[in-house]
Design a protein around this nucleic acid. Structure first.
Length: 307
DNA sequence: AAGGAGCGCAACCGCCAAGTT
DNA sequence: AAACTTGGCGGTTGCGCTCCT
């Protein structure tokens, strides 16, 4: 018996996702989490294949995704990892937080491949291309760099032969360095840059009245257990708290307030949803405040006038 | 200004592996 | 053990944008 298609394809929509569809999917996952992608379209009211929903979420809507071109450091990591792992994009992506396999694959095919070829390196084997003339035509500086890279690569290959094939400690080290760099970069960002970090023009922005919260009866906020009613009531209380915020952790000097509620942005376990899961920030500019709010799954940016 | 070529990227397709019945 | 389901992966496609002539 043949394999069944992942979904009934009759009457399903294909092609680019609309903001409305994105909103439906985000709201659904915000409430129900990621489970049973096959059922997601029906339950979320989408005329899409479950697979399509999963791809849309993992490659585009996930709040922990980085945006924009890969940095030089990330690109170097991709090249190093590709030399070790080949076209195993998901494995490569797992070493680059916030990047998807699809994104890396696209970047490889459109940018890095060409770059390597230009440098006289075969993107498949990571070894010099047979046509040595190409290398000789490179400017002297480039040649020197190329030679250094090749020596380095050779050294790496020798080291690899002494260790297990899946040993990625070096990669992890690079990764740690990258995280440190990111941290420094984040700390030195001004508030405009901070705001720009949230790609509100690409991810549909939800207005406060559009946020769907689980439809449960309100309960006392004194209980911090993980019921959805706490989520909704605490959310509004926290929002109010934000507006009145005058705590000791303020840094008014650069008009940025970061609360100490910061928690991990990504967490599949919805049982941990409670007040402590929210991350807040306020940026004030031109008579308006912008609040970014992130919970386990989603970042929202709400702008309101300063009162 | 027009249109053809090339490029970049989101989305799709088919296959595979692991888990479940 | 076989049939089936589901999620994940890598290759490919097609659309929209930009650049060039």
């Amino acid at each position: 018996m043949g394999r069944q298609p992942c979904c009934d394809k009759v009457g399903l929509k294909k092609g680019p996702w609309t903001a409305e569809e994105d909103k439906k999917l985000i709201n659904f996952i915000l409430i129900h989490g990621q489970c049973c992608w096959r059922a997601v379209p029906k339950l979320a009211g989408l005329l899409r294949c479950g697979k399509s929903c999963r791809l849309r979420w993992t490659n585009y809507l996930r709040p922990d995704l980085k945006r924009g071109l890969l940095s030089e450091h990330e690109e170097k990591m991709v090249i190093d990892l590709h030399a070790q792992l080949g076209n195993r994009w998901s494995k490569i992506a797992s070493h680059l937080p916030g990047r998807t396999d699809n994104e890396i694959k696209n970047h490889w095919n459109t940018h890095i491949k060409k770059k390597l070829k230009k440098m006289g390196i075969d993107p498949l084997t990571h070894k010099p291309l047979p046509n040595a003339n190409d290398i000789q035509n490179q400017p002297q500086q480039k040649q020197q760099k190329l030679q250094n890279d090749q020596e380095k690569q050779q050294q790496q290959e020798e080291e690899q032969s002494c260790t297990a094939a899946d040993d990625t400690s070096e990669i992890d080290q690079i990764n740690e360095e990258s995280k440190e760099e990111d941290k420094v970069e984040f700390e030195t960002m001004d508030h405009d840059q901070l705001l720009n970090g949230f790609c509100i023009d690409e991810v549909p922005l939800l207005e406060p009245h559009e946020i769907l919260v689980p439809n449960c009866a309100p309960s006392s906020s004194s209980t911090s257990s993980s019921s959805c009613s706490n989520l909704s009531s605490n959310f509004l209380e926290d929002l109010q708290y934000l507006l009145d915020f005058e705590g000791s952790n303020c840094d008014y000097s650069n008009n940025i307030i970061i609360s100490n509620h910061s928690m991990g942005l990504w967490d599949d376990d919805f049982s941990s949803w409670d007040q402590e899961s929210w991350t807040f920030g306020i940026c004030k500019k031109g008579g308006k405040s912008s609040t970014w709010i992130s919970c386990n799954l989603i970042c929202l940016l709400i702008t309101f006038p300063i009162v």
